[in-house]
Design a protein around this nucleic acid. Structure first.
Lengths: 210, 210, 210, 210
DNA sequence: GATTAACCGAGACGGTACGTCACGTCTTTAA
DNA sequence: TTAAAGACGTGACGTACCGTCTCGGTTAATC
């Protein structure tokens, strides 16, 4: 469900078996589904080489073989388009399973640290953060996007709670505390994000190792 | 020391043995000292109403009654100017002194939470974050700026270490963990930054209250 | 007979001797006769307030409650539609009858001058003139439209010839000479079109009054 | 004096010898005189092949090696630019001198008829006529441009008056009557503009040949 | 006192992207 | 086959801002 955030969001999850009124089906020529894909693909490609800086709507349109108006019919702004493009190719970190919460979190944190170190075009997130200030839609999309990325940690923590390894404490807070420092260093202070940093962070959050 | 980052850095640490008071003093008309102030003032004002979005170099120049070249002679880019403008009006949170580390941190955290909630249109930091991606000088300035804001926490923590309340452990990490979640919520997830959140964060970092 | 210039010209002057009522009657849904009228009405209205500038095919379609394709099925271009719309509300000047050629022409010329002075925003003719350059069909329609407007003068002149007031000379040339200066001033030089101008023009064409 | 119709028209004909106040000389970087020329040249060229239809501001800018803003700083619209470009290459008809008014006018009229028949890109005048409706500046420029073209006829007529060949009658009216029919046929009715037509027109205006 | 060099305000410069608009065509489902 | 609805590719529009450059003129320290 990549697009149509501009148009009404018609029938989002209706997977009921009972023969619902068969969808409204608006009149007129339907949107070209291929265009969605072409546009998103073009966006992802341009984002890959050149980042946000190398991405203009004219370029996206040209590469996708599409009119600019066709883009603006589907996405209200460059940023909403980019957010959708990012969802298209989600580089989520796989959920590790080492048997212990500590092991899982360390594995996840090290992978995340590596990703932050390697990421070539980390200008996208900063740009979106800026855009979110001016546009609530972007704000929401960005928020949703990040929440998605938090799920790995949530899974690990909840698994630990089930196993009795962890008190069912303030999971949301822990998630923030685990993720925020990575972004803080990456985007703001510029401090290095080493493997050691990742380990120390996990240790700090779980309490010193026994 | 607001200006002259573009021009030669005249008298960097002045290690001349003879203690000459003469200064290098380049020939030609000296820079107008008033211009620095006028420019920064104009920048701060425009930033106040309209944020980064309502700030263009043409506008700053016009409002400061100054040529654009005069600005670029002193600051290399819009972002460096903005960073200097922010330093001009430093809204640091005063270091509390309640007698205990926990008390100090809670007081500080609640004040910080309030500030984040009240901040009118905090689009400046996001913009700088974005700009830092493309310009290392902005990156450095931003980093320095944030480190300055961390000093309050550092002071509190070191005071605690001296008093023996705290292990001299990983102060820098703790600082990150205390500050990062605020910015993470503010800029990225958009999650609310309540007083309760501030308290829980401090409690989590120091270990549960006994 | 306002429409169907694009489609086959079905039954042009209906001279079938046998009076067959059968009609060719093509298969499929017949054209909605009301649509012609709705479209022309919408066009005239939009032309009235806003002139050609405020007239887009999308607007006409919306106001007529009609699909754009329905318009293009009947008229080949915006300009042909406009030309038909103009014919719909023909603002011809009534043929005066004062008993003498000079009297008739003066009356006609003064009325025409008044019309040119009063015309609110005569941007339609200029637009058609421009469009005619690129499209021969518009050219022809425009030509026919103007010839229609010349008929008043032709009637007056021919009446004069019959009465023996006038030599049967170069009627077409005289028509041009009588009409062209009005349009020349109106559209090109912008010179004023006064009652005096109208009279002097007629006098000049007929020879000085005795 | 090709450009600066947007800016104040400062000191138009001041060729007085007596050391006038040396011109105001506005502050700031002066307009690049070369740009005027480059832009006009590009416009003329693009007009030559492609007419108004093949002329877009982006194209002019690119060909002139100039930013679009530089054009809009000098001319308020595409049409004003085109008018100036036309003045640059004025295709006036040379004033004939055959010894008699009738001879001169016939020669002029035949030449004009030929020009109208040959003119390849007669889409410019129609376009300007249309543009003049919306923009008084264009209206004035167009009017001035046409008045310039009328001078040939005026010269011929006045010469005739001096020689006593002609009554000092209504020269302006005669000019209109001589020129308007050409444009009327060319732009509106589309009637042919033959040599015969030219001769008959002159004969009609001067009275039948004796 | 003259020279010199860096400064000053003003504003024009080339470039790039923006988001909008209208054109005339095409593609749906329904009548 | 026509209808309404509306999406489609194209391409121009005029604006805004960037950071640089160019004027004539000013303001010191040096010659």
């Amino acid at each position: 469900m990549p697009a149509s955030r501009t148009a009404a969001s018609e029938s989002d999850q209706g997977s009921n078996v009972e023969a619902l009124p068969t969808e409204p089906r608006r009149p007129g020529r339907p949107r070209d589904a291929g265009a969605d894909e072409a546009i998103l693909t073009a966006t992802v490609e341009l984002l890959a080489d050149g980042g946000i800086a190398g991405l203009s709507m004219d370029l996206v349109a040209k590469r996708a073989g599409v009119g600019k108006a066709t883009i603006y019919r589907r996405w209200a702004s460059k940023e909403e388009l980019v957010l959708d493009a990012l969802k298209t190719a989600p580089p989520t970190i796989p959920t590790p399973d080492t048997g212990s919460v500590r092991g899982d979190l360390v594995a996840w944190a090290i992978a995340l640290a590596k990703r932050f170190r390697d990421a070539p075009a980390n200008d996208v997130l900063p740009h979106l953060i800026e855009a979110a200030v001016f546009d609530d839609r972007v704000r929401e999309s960005l928020s949703a996007y990040l929440h998605g990325r938090q799920d790995t940690v949530r899974t690990i923590l909840e698994r630990g709670v089930e196993r009795g390894e962890l008190a069912a404490a303030d999971v949301e807070l822990v998630i923030d505390v685990l993720i925020a420092p990575f972004l803080y260093r990456r985007l703001m202070t510029g401090a290095p994000i080493t493997t050691s940093f990742a380990k120390r962070l996990v240790d700090f959050v779980l309490g010193r190792p026994r």
